[in-house]
Design a protein around this nucleic acid. Structure first.
Lengths: 117, 117
DNA sequence: CCGTATCCCTAAGGATACTG
DNA sequence: CAGTATCCTTAGGGATACGG
């Protein structure tokens, strides 16, 4: 008996949520933007200098597509682009807070930074 | 100026948490075990028939290593192995609940099943 | 400054067959 | 029943160079 193909993109809601925040840098980007609007280069500085432009652009585009992040382009040279959270994006903050707390509590020894300063 | 190598396994606590629950089937396995102890084959049935033995074994081993799941082997033929959550594993349930709720609320149209029945 | 465009590599995940 | 053992495919992520 054959297993039928999936009708939906996701089987379980948890899958869907993790897909949206599951990129390597996505949760950090969202978490960083919770304080307010930031420019592209500021995100690089705040999140992690190790991130490449290609990856940050890619993940920001996906976050935008999923409606978590707003992108505002200023028509000027050199370019200026600002990113901020949408309502939908903000609704993830409490969850990210808990993910952060759980990590600190249970895996603290393997982690460089803490949740808040 | 060179970026120094990482001293810790993770930079941010969120990373650490997502690494622990981030496998394809891990959150579902944890979520399924929250009702109580289950045998290997029962997990397959409950989580998703699409999962392969290899993958389920692999993820269960990792969950065990991370201290989220207990494994109890009965010395009998045919084998019987029971899995259950540890305290640490149980501590993730509230977070998974929220991940589930968020998914239902914001991505409902792309999802086959709901959080609870 | 804020991106693309390429190319590359590794790890995650899967198919299938076999076994105590 | 509950796994290993192999082999294979793909997607995620990264390095680097170039462009408006």
């Amino acid at each position: 008996m054959k297993i039928p193909p999936k009708k939906y993109k996701y089987s379980w809601p948890i899958e869907a949520t993790l897909d949206v925040i599951g990129g390597k840098w996505k949760p950090l980007v969202i978490y960083t933007l919770k304080e307010g609007t930031l420019r592209f280069s500021q995100i690089v500085d705040k999140v992690e200098p190790r991130i490449t432009q290609r990856m940050l652009t890619k993940e920001l585009r996906e976050l935008e597509k999923d409606g978590l992040v707003k992108r505002k382009v200023y028509a000027q040279v050199p370019p200026k682009v600002e990113y901020s959270l949408t309502k939908k994006g903000e609704s993830l903050i409490p969850i990210l807070d808990e993910l952060c707390d759980w990590g600190s509590e249970h895996m603290g020894d393997d982690i460089e930074f803490t949740c808040e300063e």
